[in-house]
Design a protein around this nucleic acid. Structure first.
Length: 248
DNA sequence: GCGGTGACATCTCCATATAG
DNA sequence: CTATATGGAGATGTCACCGC
């Protein structure tokens, strides 16, 4: 048995299951919920995070065979968590990506403001994917493969290496305004290069799924004020692991 | 005015994994 | 092995706004 004492924030403790590797404004290491889930629950017990954020606690609990309850007031949380609790096969992702009409994207004037981040051809591909996913949703065809593709696309939008859709910018857990990105481009003497959206989504998917995937049905995710979650029955949860909203 | 404050705004450096 | 990709509950600098 290995004990990590006050070592949950160091680089040495960062390695976890590949499914955790989604950037977010703030994210604790999976070893933290793992530490408590391991000691305080048994398989099939229910674990709940009322402020799940990118979903580290639900993902880790599911990996450990626990039942999962998750909640966050931010609707993006479900988009970032749900696809990783029920992962598609790589071949299904690839064939679905093949259905997207990548050349049909028509950026609006508003979209074109993001030209400081994206090459025009890349922007067209992003817009094509966005429209296609919206149409799938409206037609009631949106499934777990689409859910996965949306998550990976969101996680690839901007970053500071060629694995992202954007030109070099701040790290993916940070945000640069359009004005500040103009300054970054000028200082570095750079313009956004062409990027292959489909290829990058596939590459990140391969990385996220390089360990065993998750096919898990025992999860309930909500987008509520955590003070009022009537769907979660009294006494139905064995352990709460969370990190409440913080001020920095 | 003045010091303290802020789910701010902007940007750096380093450990680790992986490719070659 | 070396080179590159990638992720940072990070590390600082601004500046409107507050109570006094």
């Amino acid at each position: 048995m290995r004990y990590f004492v006050n070592e949950f924030w160091t680089n040495a403790q960062r390695a976890g299951h590949a499914l955790h590797e989604i950037s977010y404004r703030a994210c604790f290491k999976p070893q933290l919920p793992e530490f408590f889930i391991d000691r305080l629950t048994e398989p099939s017990d229910a674990v709940y995070d009322p402020f799940m954020g990118r979903g580290t606690t639900p993902i880790q609990a599911a990996l450990m065979g626990r039942r999962v309850f998750g909640n966050d007031a931010n609707p993006m949380s479900i988009m970032m968590t749900r696809p990783r609790l029920n992962t598609p096969e790589l071949c299904d992702i690839e064939s679905r990506l093949g259905e997207v009409p990548w050349d049909a994207g028509e950026p609006t004037l508003g979209d074109q403001n993001f030209g400081v981040f994206f090459h025009p051809a890349t922007l067209c591909q992003i817009v094509a994917l966005r429209s296609w996913l919206s149409e799938r949703e409206e037609a009631g065809k949106f499934d777990y493969v689409d859910d996965w593709i949306r998550l990976v696309a969101m996680s690839r939008l901007t970053g500071h290496s060629p694995g992202f859709f954007s030109v070099y910018t701040l790290p993916p857990n940070q945000a640069a305004s359009i004005e500040s990105q103009s300054r970054i481009n000028e200082r570095r003497g750079q313009t956004p290069p062409k990027r292959d959206v489909k290829a990058l989504i596939l590459r990140k998917s391969r990385s996220l799924l390089r360990h065993v995937g998750l096919s898990y049905s025992q999860f309930d995710l909500y987008c509520c004020d955590s003070r009022n979650t009537p769907e979660i029955q009294t006494d139905s949860v064995d352990l709460v692991v969370t990190s409440p909203p913080f001020l920095d």
